[in-house]
């Protein structure tokens, strides 16, 4: 299985632990990623106040990806949504298509509209398959109650998982031998986009999410691969009060990190030592070495 890989800016900074674990598990599962050459920002940061600029920058990446006939995999949910969103807008909206064509021509590029943009979760479920994942598990994560957190953009608005109650990450969690815990806010927004500007609001959103997961019995959260959601939950919760009045200490691991633990990979290869939330206690029974 070979794919073209679009990491996205955040995978080189706050997403480093996720990137490390993706590299590790793709080795085990036999997924080959060819990182796109000269990829740049997907345009997502400009989306709110300048959609045309956002679509044009996404289209630039798509135009480069089109030179290869592999599917384009974007692990970051925002990049995925923005790249796929640009593809959809360009195929539906004639006016924007003409404008973007003109903008791309300024850089000597053209997008014909043939790239297939996918999430890594989609690849894991539909190409790799749960059978293969199950066969690679060395440490059954039995007894671990995991809440799978999806964030918004991974399945909203374009899917392919259910836009409001996605299930694919739960399936992966179960195939690792862990128990997946349903909590209603599993695809609720964490507010990551406005983390800097509206702290009070984002704090409240994160608190609701984590409370909800706790109430439904999750002892650990297997977060989406989006570095924005992951960082927002992982780094900020220590400063947020839970229902009991103490600070949250919910272990947040990216789903790829959890897979790595089940595959018996060394925790340092999975970037687990870079997580801010207290992941060591809950994962210790399943690890041969300390984090």
């Amino acid at each position: 299985m070979k794919y073209l890989y679009y990491p996205g800016c955040a995978m080189e900074t706050t997403g480093v632990p996720i990137q490390m674990s993706i590299d590790a598990i793709s080795n085990v599962l036999g997924i080959e990623f060819e990182t796109m050459k000269d990829w740049t920002c997907c345009g997502c940061p400009g989306e709110a106040i300048n959609e045309l600029a956002a679509v044009s920058l996404a289209a630039r990446n798509l135009a480069l990806a089109e030179k290869s006939d592999l599917d384009l995999v974007a692990p970051c949910s925002c990049c995925y949504r923005n790249l796929l969103g640009a593809h959809v807008i360009l195929s539906e909206d004639r006016k924007v298509r003409a404008q973007v064509k003109e903008a791309l021509a300024a850089a000597g590029l053209e997008y014909k509209g043939t790239v297939k943009v996918r999430t890594l979760i989609d690849v894991l479920i539909n190409d790799v398959g749960l059978e293969l994942i199950r066969s690679k598990v060395k440490n059954q994560l039995s007894g671990l109650k995991v809440g799978a957190y999806y964030g918004c953009h991974q399945s909203r608005p374009y899917g392919p998982d259910h836009p409001e109650f996605p299930v694919w990450q739960d399936w992966i969690v179960e195939s690792l031998g862990a128990e997946s815990v349903f909590f209603p806010l599993k695809a609720q927004c964490c507010g990551g986009a406005q983390l800097f500007s509206q702290r009070a609001m984002v704090t409240e959103l994160v608190a609701r999410l984590l409370n909800n997961a706790e109430v439904h019995g999750a002892k650990c959260i297997a977060s989406t691969l989006c570095p924005l959601c992951f960082t927002n939950l992982d780094v900020n919760q220590g400063r947020i009060k839970n229902r009991a009045g103490s600070n949250f200490a919910m272990p947040i691991v990216a789903i790829s990190q959890l897979m790595g633990v089940a595959f018996g990979l060394p925790p340092r290869d999975l970037g687990l030592h870079k997580n801010v939330s207290p992941v060591d206690k809950v994962l210790a029974p399943y690890l041969q070495v300390r984090i």
Partner: peptide, 30 residues
């Protein structure tokens, strides 16, 4: 974040900023 090496203080190398500027300038003129 910084102590874990997750937020580099130094900027990343600009990538194809010429191309990006050309596209964004064109967008602005449109």
């Amino acid at each position: 974040l910084i102590s874990r090496g997750l937020m580099p203080i130094m900027p990343p190398k600009p990538i194809k900023s010429g191309e990006i500027k050309a596209i964004l300038n064109k967008v602005r003129s449109i």
